[in-house]
């Protein structure tokens, strides 16, 4: 464990909690892609099945349980409790175009052709593109609430910190996981355009809105 990984995990946790609080406090999930949240719930479920088979640390286990719990709570709030506020018309990204190729890729390119390992690989690939329905929704409506942009920023920051963590681990632990690194870099690149808008607009006190 190094400081970049720890702050990355905490940034991830902050993102998840910001989103839950936003929905809970405003009693609304307007502007939030339920599809992205379902994809994240699938990501955590398929990745953390090793909760049942291997113990790494108390930190590792508790974070996994918290991530999974929060992911399902978010999906519940969007599709059950506050479903009347869910903007399904704008959440029109075709997720099958992500899940099917990602599933195929996980079967083809993995570290080990075993059930758990293929699910882990699937979750890594899926996480790298799971935010696309959310970004698609923002580009479609042309705007995002400021709190939603804080959520996205924390999520992107988590990915960027993980890259620094991998550089650290490569130099100091001679550790690298090519699948995680390639998928992680792809995922971080997806946030670059958003980072630019966040810094030039949101941090200067303006609402994030895109030119028509």
């Amino acid at each position: 464990m190094n400081i970049f990984r720890l702050t990355g995990d905490l940034s991830h946790l902050a993102a998840i909690i910001i989103l839950l609080l936003k929905i809970w406090k405003t009693r609304s999930c307007a502007g939030i892609s339920g599809k992205s949240q379902i994809l994240f719930a699938i990501v955590f479920t398929t990745r953390y099945l090793d909760l049942l088979s291997s113990f790494i640390s108390l930190y590792n286990t508790s974070m996994k349980v918290i991530y999974i719990g929060c992911a399902y709570a978010t999906v519940y709030l969007i599709y059950m409790k506050f479903r009347a506020t869910y903007d399904g018309n704008h959440d029109s990204f075709r997720v099958e175009f992500l899940v099917v190729p990602v599933g195929g890729l996980a079967v083809l390119i993995n570290h080990d052709f075993s059930f758990l390992e293929i699910l882990w690989t699937f979750s890594i690939y899926l996480e790298s593109v799971a935010i696309l329905p959310q970004l698609f929704m923002i580009s479609k409506t042309g705007e995002a609430e400021t709190i939603t942009t804080h959520y996205l920023f924390c999520l992107g920051l988590y990915r960027a910190l993980y890259i620094v963590n991998w550089i650290w681990r490569y130099y100091f632990e001679a550790f690298f996981d090519l699948i995680a690194i390639v998928a992680g870099v792809v995922q971080t690149i997806l946030y670059c355009d958003f980072f630019y808008l966040y810094v030039t607009k949101v941090l200067k006190g303006k609402k994030l809105s895109l030119p028509a």
Binding site: D9, M63, K64, H111, D112, A180
Partner: peptide, 10 residues
């Protein structure tokens, strides 16, 4: 690096 090591990252 041993790529088959347990996945210790989150």
């Amino acid at each position: 690096a041993d790529e088959s090591a347990a996945h210790d990252e989150l």
